[in-house]
Write a protein that binds this DNA or RNA. Structure first.
Lengths: 221, 221
DNA sequence: GATCGCTTGAAACACATCCTCATCATCGAC
DNA sequence: GTCGATGATGAGGATGTGTTTCAAGCGATC
């Protein structure tokens, strides 16, 4: 289930958003000031943030640059073009002006959530499969598996490019920061172990081998 | 240099956009109708598409679902919320209403381009037939077939020169990097297997034998 | 220092791919 | 139409790749 954090001090708008988002099947958290938002972010780990600009404590413009790896949609009454441009170029993925049509906002949220996650994000999803790269826990519908550092790096790389085939040399290059001496034969081991752990979650084999090239994520039927 | 395709029949707006985008350092292509856009897309392979809705020939709503793997920003005078929602959920990454502020549009383009990872450049199309040389998957209207390395190399060579006849010796030369021991007799094998796989997609035989010379792609009726 | 977990390496096995050979079908020339 | 040559298809075997299991090295923790 996708998790959305609403950062807005306007209780009426926040309540309305919460109700609409919950109906859509999202999990919702709230923060009512900029400072509270910064405190809540590491705990909540949302998949997307709705950020108001005029906040008590710390303005939204100050909060935005501190959010890394999570897409932020700015929801504000400011209509000035320069504000929009600054915020979009400053890291926001979208900008919606109040008053807004809730259906349009929901559509824009859906667009952002279906797009590829940022490389420095800590949480990834691929169908029912979820990965927390910080705690190195992979899970499917509640069933969890602890991954080793290398396994987590491989799975993260695959989940960052869910449609592409990742060559073995690419994997070796990209995970060499963690374990420099990893060779192709040991890579087989890690993939094998990773597969085994994922298979124990729900019986599906999420990793597909592309013969002579590398590996690729595969969605279960 | 990033490449942007403008699909709009309004010459004034298109010219204005072209000028602004060129100043920003983008390379710009134009298409003035939906049908022209579909023809231009496989050739131009842009990084991003600006799509108007009211187009002669084929409406933008019909063009959008045929664009795969390239982010599309819809630029339209339609302000109805249902239109926006349909298009956003139908694959567009953003929706900007005319008249628009050029600076905001530029910012939104920059956001989409910074999010877009490397568009896989290894895709080829020939009529309804598509080939992804990275994943080695050939597909026709959703039906997919996995190809071997040599089969993929042969099909790629044919699709790179869709109008020409490719001699067998040419094929042997060009795929010798992948499979050095391929002889003329084994080439028959691969073409045969390739034909069989493609035939299972939609029943058509895309590969035509030119007697005494070589092979050539053939479009189904 | 012993234990545990992670990583690495080699070997066995299974399997996809590719080539060779044989057979049948098709085309062109006479 | 017949014949020779070329193209197409199928089966079998050799090669390489992928997967798994087992064992050993290494570092961290207790």
């Amino acid at each position: 289930m996708k998790h959305i954090l609403i950062i807005d001090d306007d209780v009426a708008i926040g309540d309305m958003l919460t109700e609409a988002l919950t109906l859509e099947g999202y999990r919702v958290s709230r923060a009512y000031s900029g400072t509270e938002a910064l405190l809540a972010l590491p705990q909540a780990r949302p998949d997307l943030v709705l950020l108001d600009l005029m906040l008590p404590g710390l303005a939204g413009e100050q909060v935005l640059p501190q959010i890394r790896g999570i897409p932020v949609i700015v929801v504000s009454a400011k209509v000035d073009v320069q504000d929009k441009v600054d915020l979009l170029l400053g890291g926001a993925v979208d900008y919606v002006t109040k008053p807004f049509e809730i259906r349009e906002l929901l559509a824009r949220i859906a667009v952002r959530l279906r797009q590829a996650p940022a490389p420095d994000a800590a949480r990834f999803t691929f169908g029912p499969l979820e990965l927390d790269a910080d705690t190195r826990v992979a899970s499917v519908r509640g069933a969890e598996a602890r991954l080793t550092r290398t396994e987590c790096a491989i799975l993260k790389l695959l989940m960052l490019n869910p449609t592409q085939v990742i060559t073995k040399s690419t994997i070796l290059d990209r995970i060499s920061l963690d374990t420099p001496d990893c060779t192709e034969s040991s890579l087989k081991m890690h993939v094998s172990n990773l597969r085994k752990k994922l298979r124990e979650l729900d019986g599906n084999d999420y990793i597909e081998a592309v013969w002579g090239i590398g590996f690729k994520l595969r969605a279960p039927e």
